[in-house]
Design a protein around this nucleic acid. Sequence first.
DNA 1: GACCAGGCACATC
DNA 2: GATGTGCATGGT
Length: 223
Amino acid sequence: MPVRAEIQHALIDLYESLFARFGPQHWWPGDSPTEIAIGAVLTQNTSWSNVEKAIANLRAQDALDFDALLKLGDGELAEIIRPAGYYNTKSRYLKHLANFVKTLPTGRLDDLKRLDLADARRRLLAVKGIGPETADSILLYACDMPTFVVDAYTRRVLSRHGLIEASASYDDIKRLVEDALPRETLLFNEFHALIVKLCKEHCRTTAQCARCPWEHHPHDASP
DNA sequence: GACCAGGCACATC
DNA sequence: GATGTGCATGGT
């Protein structure tokens, strides 16, 4: 279904004003596809500052790759990622992801790039612990594939701007943005990263963000 | 000491 | 399909 022109223009305006205000974000904060995917699992319902501690622990243990991760015992891995919270659950999820990646032709996430986007997404979603947001984060930020990530920040900002209903599902929101904007990896990457930037550094708290008057002062503090 | 944070699987209706 | 619950740490 085509997106209403009014909504489409509002989404484009939002993106452009965020970009003008904050500039390119060059996400994801992580320097290899593997690290990005591990971070995507660890950040489930968890603040990034806690994820950073867990990733630092993994790096210190030389366990920031899927082979090394699979050699650790469940309890051992859980202890390493403890600061990220839900450590028993996430320890299992990380192993499911590692096992999945090892089934790919060359055993690397890059193999997903050779698949059709919808097919790659279906395969990721079949892995226990990989839901829609984690799958899209991996596809967009680790595999450079043009899929849009919907998370709590995305929902909050789009809802605050009257672009989605409170009842909108994950797929409703994803479809809206993908149908309204050019389906380009770089654009989806920057748009989602800018939304997070807005929430974290402009609004700072959830309460402030929920009533963020961004559209009323889109150019505040800009040079 | 509440309340919150870049979800997800699973049970139940 | 919608709704409820368990999972857990560290910052405010």
